[in-house]
Amino acid sequence: MLICPALKTIFRSGLPYCDNISRYESEPYSNENLMAVVALKDVHKSYRAGDTELRVLEGIDLVIEPGEFVAIAGPSGSGKSTICNLLALLDNPNRGSVYFNDQNVEELGDRELSLLRNHHIGIVFQGFNLVQVLTAHENVMLPMEIGNTPVDKASSEAYRLLKEVGLEGFEHQRPQQLSGGQQQRVALARALATNPRLVVADEPTANLDTKTAMQIIDLMRNLNRDHGVSFVFATHDERLLQRVSRIIRLLDGLIVEDTMQEAAS
């Protein structure tokens, strides 16, 4: 098992410090001339519940490299979903910065952020979140249509992706006519529709049985390998962690472990 050099530094110094991220302050981040997909720098996030402030993340530093297959693990309430939301640019930190493709997203307006999400980020939700009035094929086309891809091109790409996730013959089914595993496959195809740099999945297997969950994770890993897309997914299922090459463990809003490993085949 390999330990991320940055985490080693943190553990040794005891400082909330990440060697790679610190370079953002002076120069664009690069790792062997390859730009990080997304990076969180000293990110704090809290929510207000009535008069109580609930601190979810407390100074997170995290870099996701191109092509990585990363699992964020931890118990409920440890901040997994919040990190996913920040990585997918769905939320803003209370403090700290989020960099996507070397750009501080704080500087971006709604239109630019939307474009960034559409072109570069695929998202898979725990509850699948397919648009119920659209067929599987139309759901996969949706991000491309939002991004103004010509309809013919979007349609053929959607057919190809559905075939790739094993849903050939189910293209014209509505979500309610598909099983949970099939819906999540549609969601995966949808996440890959715009050929993104990053796919973020928040507990993508939580609503699935073990066998289907394994199939989905394997499918994600294959897509990661075939498309070179970075995958980050949150899970509290320890069995799935064998399938990933990097595990980030969270506890009470802090990264307590960031390990590289050889993924089991």
Binding site: A88, L90, D110, R111, S114, L115, R117, N118, H119, I123, F125, N129, V131, Q132, L142, P143, I146, G147, R190, T194
Partner: peptide
């Protein structure tokens, strides 16, 4: 509301 959140997550901006 959830569908709207999904659409926004997929890249639809506010005006959409």
């Amino acid at each position: 509301t959830r569908e709207i959140g999904t659409l926004r997550a997929l890249g639809a901006n506010r005006s959409s």
